[in-house]
Each structure stands twice: as structure tokens, then as C-alpha cells.
């Protein structure tokens, strides 16, 4: 059992000033880790919400602090924003007598492929994977955005297993566009898993419109009863389409966060 009673864990999420559900999964993973008693303290911090990255270290009582970014990919936030706002100068930073250990983001973890497969299977029970096109949808574009790279990496891993008829990476804002899902795929069944941290603006409000399963943004999931995920399957464009919650809402993320702490220790040993 993972136990660090003398250390604190800070899980960093993006958060949102527009969508009330963006920080939800990060809090839920923190709650799960608190329940496990794995750390002496567990905190969350956000770029767009409070506690902010500028506030959070003031709230920690322990002297040893592990920081795990709850982000899908290495990129602008994990390499520039989080270190800058927390005042980090590398994997290990001493700040006012405290040691901050900066771990890899959750999306880098090798277990992502298993979680994506689990999510894909659970959303389309009884549907033959061999007759299914599996889409992993990333954001694409943006500042030093490696989410597209991460999505491609997961697609290659899953494709190599030979379980699905086809496995396709697609994006909101760059080719191949998820809006063209019917042109990009050939199987009668289509499963779409958003490679995002939360069912926030992108996966709940934007991608359903791009897929054609909502004509306008439905509004925040918490305000509308998560309807877009409860109406599967969708029959449109001659196919049967299943739309899944963002991968970051998967319960297994709490274990991935702990794994990233263990990986930090292993690398430092």
C-alpha cells in the first residue's frame, strides 16, 4: 500500500472560469487519494480556478510536496505555466525550506491505453470491436500543444493490439477533424472517446456539435444532467455512434496519479 504520511500531494488541473465541471474530476481523484490515506495532505490547484498555483503552496503544511499535473500531455502548461507559477526550477526545487517534487503529467502514463480501452468497451457493450471504428479525440493546435502527439501515441498503441476494426486519432481544430468522423471511418459502429481531463467545455459542449449529435452547445453537463452521454447509441450518417465521457473522468486516474509519484521516486533513487 502506497503510504507517504509525511508528504503532501498537490494535483494541478487547468480549471475553467466558464464551465463548472472542468475541475470536478481533479477534485474527485484528490478525494479518492485522500480516502486511501496515501498522503499526509492532498490539495488541488488550478490555472483558472482557486486555489491557484500562486496560492497552493501556502496552504500545505508538510515539508515534502509532490506535484502531479492532471494534464493529458507534456506541453505549454506542464513545461512553462506550472513551473513558472509554482516557482520551480526543475524536477526538484527547494522553496523556503520545503522540497517540491515535480512529477510527469498523468497523460504520459502507459496505463492510458488500458483506460481508453476500458472506457471504449464500457460505452458500447455487446458491440463487436472488430466492426467498430474507435476514435481517440484530442484538442490539437495551440501553444506548444502536444495533446495531438499524445493522442497519436495512444492510437498507435491500441491499433497494435488488433482489437478494433480501426483506431483513428482526430482533433477538434486540426486535420483529421473529428467533424468528418463519417468520412474518416469505415466500420458500421463508431466509438468516440475524448482524450480530455474533464467533461468541460470541449468534450461536453464542443465535440457533440462537431459530431452532429447536438445542434447547439447543450450547456454545462452538471446543469443539463449529462444528457449527451445518456442517449447512446446515436444513429446518424448511416452509422451507430457511441460517445463516451472524457477519459479523465475514469476512476483509474487516481491510481495513475499515485503511479506518477512512485515513478518520480524511482527515477530519483
Amino acid at each position: 500500500m502506497f503510504s507517504k504520511p509525511d508528504s503532501a500531494l498537490v494535483i494541478v488541473g487547468h480549471g475553467s472560469t466558464l464551465n463548472p465541471d472542468s475541475s470536478g474530476p481533479t477534485w474527485e481523484h484528490a478525494d479518492a487519494i485522500t480516502q486511501l490515506g496515501a498522503f499526509g495532505e492532498v490539495h488541488c490547484a488550478f490555472w483558472k480556478e482557486e486555489p491557484s498555483l500562486r496560492q497552493v503552496l501556502h496552504c500545505v503544511n508538510k515539508r515534502e510536496i509532490y506535484v502531479v499535473p492532471n494534464f493529458i500531455s507534456e506541453g505549454y502548461f506542464t513545461q512553462t505555466v506550472i513551473p513558472r507559477e509554482l516557482g520551480l526550477n526543475g524536477p526538484l526545487t527547494e522553496i523556503a525550506g520545503r522540497t517540491v517534487k515535480y512529477c510527469a503529467p498523468v497523460g504520459n502514463h502507459s496505463r492510458m491505453s488500458d483506460l481508453l480501452l476500458k472506457r471504449a468497451a464500457s460505452i458500447a457493450p455487446g458491440v463487436s470491436p472488430k466492426e467498430t471504428s474507435l476514435f481517440i479525440v484530442g484538442h490539437g493546435t495551440g501553444l506548444n500543444d502536444n495533446s495531438a502527439v499524445a493522442a497519436k501515441r495512444e492510437v498507435e498503441r491500441i491499433r497494435s493490439l488488433g482489437l478494433y476494426g480501426e483506431v483513428i486519432a482526430a482533433y477538434m481544430e486540426e486535420d483529421p477533424l473529428i467533424a468528418k468522423w463519417d468520412e474518416l471511418s469505415t466500420q458500421p459502429n463508431v466509438v468516440v472517446v475524448p482524450f480530455f481531463i474533464a467533461d468541460g467545455l470541449h468534450s461536453y459542449e464542443d465535440i457533440p456539435v462537431l459530431l452532429g449529435i447536438a445542434s447547439t452547445s447543450p450547456g454545462a453537463a452538471s446543469a443539463t444532467g449529462a444528457g449527451v452521454f445518456t442517449q447512446n447509441p446515436y444513429r446518424l450518417r448511416g452509422r451507430t455512434l457511441f460517445y463516451a465521457n472524457s477519459i479523465g473522468t475514469e476512476e483509474g486516474f487516481a491510481e495513475v496519479i499515485l503511479d506518477q509519484v512512485a515513478a518520480f521516486d524511482a527515477a530519483a533513487a
Binding site: E49, P51, Q55, V56, H58, C59, V60, A96
Partner: peptide, 20 residues
């Protein structure tokens, strides 16, 4: 209180310790 007013307990105590 950490949920209602995130960081506000910690920031005040840090200020009392002269760390802000």
C-alpha cells in the same frame, strides 16, 4: 472552508508567519 474559500485559511496563516 477550503471549498467555500479556497486557499483563504492557508494564505492568512502564511501571512501571520511572515511568509506572504
Amino acid at each position: 472552508l477550503d471549498a467555500f474559500y479556497p486557499a483563504m485559511l492557508g494564505v492568512h496563516l502564511a501571512r501571520e508567519r511572515g511568509e506572504i
